[in-house]
């Protein structure tokens, strides 16, 4: 295990739009580990992801989320991000007129508690953007675009991974990062995430419907989420099994 970071979720209950969706989830992820969450449509995977990140409107009604001992429940999304959590959205949002590098600069701007570093200068950010783009085969001309505007579904997903690489958080939640990607892109993205687990000990919670993501990304644990609860957990073989059997058994 590289870094000594820990993300510990205990007895998490969350509702979206007033409806109870997440009904008691426990997860314990250490730095460098990859945890996979699978489950049928509507089982609450995205709601779980938003509850972790702190989306307004997704209300935690019970339980706790601790990142290196810091309780995230009750603090706003941007503070959770600064505490070390990143969420790649299932459907990344278009923000017209707002450039990717400007957002990365804001995201990395010191908030008083952090020291400015060379990577955080505009040149440093530019450099990281380029390197990360190259790593996942993301066309550099997209770097000059407004966030997700005029990007295809797959390009948006790559854009999320690119930002993950620039921000280098200790933990990330990837909500169907592989949906909408072509086969080559799935491999490139999986490879980038896999290498990040070693590079800076990134801890991963990856929501997916497809076993193919795990051909490159080594899963430590696979969890099955059904109706807001984890009903089974196992090794990577569980993902393969699910691909054949489906969720009927649960």
């Amino acid at each position: 295990m590289t870094a000594g970071h820990h993300l510990v979720v205990e007895g998490l209950h969350a509702s979206a739009g007033g409806k109870a969706v997440v009904k008691g989830v426990d997860l314990s992820v250490s730095g460098g580990e990859v945890h996979v969450v699978m489950g049928p449509n509507g089982s609450g995977k995205s709601t779980l992801a938003h509850a972790l990140m702190g989306r307004p409107g997704t209300t935690v009604t019970g339980g706790s989320i601790r990142l290196d001992g810091l309780e995230l429940v009750g603090i706003p999304a941007w503070r959770r991000a600064r505490a070390g959590l990143f969420l790649a959205l299932q459907q990344p949002i278009e923000v017209p007129g707002v450039l990717l590098d400007a957002v990365m600069a804001e995201a990395l701007a010191p908030d008083g508690s952090e020291e400015p570093t060379a990577e955080r200068t505009p040149a440093g950010i530019e450099d990281r953007l380029r390197r990360e783009a190259a790593a996942i085969g993301f066309d550099e001309r997209f770097l000059r675009r407004a966030l997700n505007v005029d990007l295809s579904g797959g390009e948006r997903k790559r854009n999320e991974v690119l930002q993950l690489g620039v921000l280098r958080p200790p933990f990330c939640v990837l909500d169907e990062i592989d949906s909408g990607l072509d086969v080559d892109a799935v491999r490139a993205v999986a490879r980038r995430i896999e290498s990040a687990t070693e590079e800076w000990g990134l801890g991963v919670v990856a929501v997916t419907h497809f076993h193919r993501l795990l051909r490159v990304l080594r899963a430590d644990r696979v969890h099955v989420l059904v109706e807001g609860r984890i009903v089974a957990s196992g090794g990577p073989e569980l993902a393969e099994e699910l691909e054949h059997t489906g969720y009927a058994a649960y």
């Binding site: 990143f86 923000v95 990365m104 804001e106």
Partner: peptide, 10 residues
């Protein structure tokens, strides 16, 4: 929310 989830203050 999208920008905040990257660490940008509100």
């Amino acid at each position: 929310y999208y920008l905040e989830s990257r660490g940008v203050p509100p």
